[in-house]
């Protein structure tokens, strides 16, 4: 079955294409993507009860009550611990910069306290610079990417423990 990242990538590809509808079936599970309005608006629907039952640690009762539900993706073990952490994700494809310039200190390091409007990094593409803000008040507990790395749309960059 497709993982979360793959589904995100597919959504992006469809978004940029003239495809209106996309269906993917594998091992009895089905992913259906549909553009509803003119401004490409996708709904991701897992419409197969057996797939939902197969999800780890998913109470059976819940899956029976909700045979159709919005994106509910399998959680990996490592993500269990990060459940309560806020993920700062990249809003665009581009290069991740931890500091405002090569000689400067990074905007934040692990342990830094941030507020909603604290700049945590820059993502750049085609010489367009986007200063990313934390959007939550809390503490940076992990930095998931390297300085200079290419990041994808929606890719998690930081984990923040909200206050």
């Amino acid at each position: 079955m497709l993982n979360f990242k793959e589904i995100k990538e597919i959504i992006k590809l469809i978004d940029d294409s003239s495809i209106d509808e996309f269906t993917y079936e594998s091992e009895g599970a089905k992913v259906q993507l549909k553009k509803t309005a003119a401004r490409a608006n996708q709904h991701v629907v897992y419409n197969n009860a057996s797939e939902i039952q197969a999800l780890p640690k998913q109470p059976a009762a819940e899956s029976l009550e909700q045979p159709k539900k919005e994106v509910h993706l399998p959680k990996e073990e490592s993500e269990q611990k990060t459940e309560n952490l806020h993920k700062i994700t990249s809003p665009m494809v581009g290069t991740f910069y931890a500091a405002p310039n090569p000689d400067a200190d990074p905007y934040v390091t692990i342990g830094s306290k941030v507020k909603e409007n604290t700049v945590v990094c820059i993502v750049e593409a085609m010489k367009l610079f986007n200063e990313i803000e934390a959007e939550v008040k809390g503490e940076i507990v992990d930095i998931l990417v390297e300085n200079g790395q290419l990041v994808e749309y929606g890719q998690p960059l930081f984990l923040v423990k909200p206050e």
Binding site: P91, M126, K127, F129, N130, E131, E133
Partner: peptide, 24 residues
């Protein structure tokens, strides 16, 4: 690429763009 402007091979124009955004 992406947006330096050259005249006879030398740079005459530079462009730098910044975004003001909140989340998406």
């Amino acid at each position: 690429w992406p947006n330096d402007i050259l005249i006879n091979g030398k740079k005459a124009v530079g462009i730098l763009t910044e975004l003001e955004a909140e989340a998406d």
